[in-house]
Deep mutational scan, measured.
Amino acid sequence: MDETGKELVLALYDYQEKSPREVTMKKGDILTLLNSTNKDWWKVEVKITVNGKTYERQGFVPAAYVKKL
């Protein structure tokens, strides 16, 4: 869990989004888990830094590609 009590997951593999509802992740990324009720796709939040500014983006990743921490 992070400092706000949200559950975290670890990306076990790289994943490139294939639709606007998904998010890209790299092996080793730590993501915030938002919803894991679907056994195949989990909703996560990723933080992306571009030119020194951090953005948060929500989307789905394959559940088999992440592990709860």
Results as ranks from 00 to 15, higher is better:
D40Q: 13
K68E: 06
Y65E: 02
D2Q: 10
S19M: 07
L31T: 01
P62C: 03
G28Q: 02
T54R: 09
L31R: 00
V9C: 10
W41L: 03
K43E: 14
T4P: 13
Y15R: 02
E17L: 06
N35W: 06
K26N: 07
F60W: 15
W41I: 03
W42V: 06
L10D: 01
K39Q: 12
K68I: 15
S19D: 11
P62W: 03
T24A: 05
D29P: 00
M25V: 11
N35L: 08
L69E: 03
K26F: 12
Y65R: 06
G59L: 04
K68N: 06
Q58S: 11
K67I: 14
L12P: 00
V9F: 04
V23I: 15
V61T: 01
L10T: 06
I48P: 03
K18W: 04
E3S: 11
Y13E: 10
K53L: 14
T37G: 10
K68V: 12
Q58G: 05
G28K: 02
W41D: 00
Y55A: 11
T37H: 11
K27F: 05
V61H: 00
R57V: 07
A11I: 02
N51M: 11
E3Q: 10
T24E: 04
D2R: 05
R57K: 13
T32Y: 10
L12I: 09
Y55D: 07
K39W: 07
T54Y: 10
E3I: 08
I30D: 00
V23G: 02
F60G: 01
K67A: 11
V44N: 00
V9D: 00
V50C: 10
V9S: 02
V23T: 04
V44F: 00
P62N: 03
G5L: 12
K68M: 09
L34C: 06
K18S: 10
G59V: 03
Y13P: 00
L31C: 07
K6E: 10
E3D: 13
K47V: 13
Q58D: 07
K27T: 06
P62K: 03
Y55N: 08
T4F: 15
M25E: 00
T32Q: 12
F60T: 03
W42E: 00
K27E: 06
V23N: 02
W42Q: 00
D14K: 02
I30Q: 04
L69S: 03
Q58F: 06
N35T: 07
L10N: 02
K47G: 08
N35P: 03
L10G: 02
D40C: 10
L33G: 01
E17I: 05
K6V: 14
K53R: 11
V44D: 00
K47C: 10
A63G: 05
L12E: 03
K53I: 15
T24W: 03
V9G: 10
K39D: 13
Y13I: 08
L34F: 04
R57T: 06
S36G: 11
E56Q: 14
Y65T: 07
N38L: 09
K67T: 15
N35H: 06
L8Q: 10
M1F: 13
P20R: 09
M1C: 14
L10A: 04
L69Y: 08
E56D: 13
I30F: 04
T49S: 12
V44M: 01
E45Y: 06
Y65S: 09
A64G: 11
T49N: 11
L31E: 00
K67G: 07
L33S: 01
A63H: 03
V9T: 02
A64V: 08
L31Q: 01
K27D: 02
S19I: 04
Y13M: 13
F60L: 09
V44I: 06
A63R: 10
M25D: 00
K26T: 08
K18M: 13
